[in-house]
């Protein structure tokens, strides 16, 4: 009897001190957040590496108690031309009021593709320009013992976030903006984080 109780005790202890994994964005890595906007004469791209946040789950199953939150500082987006950056910040994104954009949610799909890769989908809320909208994003996670790489491509509609579309001659841009994300995370114990 005593042996059973001790065994139960060990099992409880094991699960009590959880096996949750928290991965935070590794700032020293070559992270990429890129948005691409189509314009009649020239497409333009905005790029930043200033992404921060975390992803969390428990156990082997990525869906178990998963949480994720990632934010991008919009003041750091570089379109290649300072004046255009300023236009984007002041006229359209209004970064003095809304400097951060974020996505927070949970994983709703995690399909193992091979030893290290998972096709995932996350459902949650996307916040841009003071407006929060429900959003589902698909992506790919590459996971090794001490490294996590997350990549994703998706689109947003500017009017959903009350962003005015500039319209003057050739400067009119498409209402749909494409986003490409590719960034790296490490566990909290990683000294390079």
């Amino acid at each position: 009897m005593k042996r059973r109780i001790y065994f139960s005790f060990i099992i409880i202890l094991f699960f009590s001190f959880g096996n949750g994994e928290e991965w935070a964005v590794k700032k020293s890595s070559e992270n990429l957040v890129k948005f691409i906007s189509d314009a009649p004469i020239e497409d333009f791209e905005g790029v930043t590496n200033d992404i921060d946040g975390y992803i969390y789950w428990e156990g082997e199953n990525l869906l178990h108690k998963s949480q994720l939150y990632f934010e991008v500082n919009l003041n750091t987006i570089d379109t290649g031309i300072g004046l255009r950056n300023r236009h984007m910040r002041e006229n359209y994104l209004e970064t003095d009021k809304f400097p951060i954009t974020y996505f927070k949610g949970t994983l709703i799909k995690a399909e193992r593709v091979d030893e290290t890769h998972y096709k995932v989908a996350a459902r949650g809320k996307m916040f841009i320009h003071g407006v929060e909208q429900p959003k589902t994003i698909v992506g790919l996670i590459e996971k090794t013992t001490d490294h996590l790489n997350i990549s994703s491509k998706f689109e947003i509609k500017l009017s959903d976030y009350h962003i005015k579309i500039p319209s003057l001659m050739f400067y009119k841009i498409d209402e749909t903006m494409r986003l490409i994300l590719d960034f790296h995370c490490s566990t909290r114990t990683d000294p390079n984080k």
């Binding site: 949750g20 928290e22 921060d52 975390y54 108690k65 949480q67 909290r188």
Partner: peptide, 8 residues
């Protein structure tokens, strides 16, 4: 819900 260590 888990306690997240990441800080804004």
């Amino acid at each position: 819900p888990p306690h997240i260590h990441w800080k804004k």
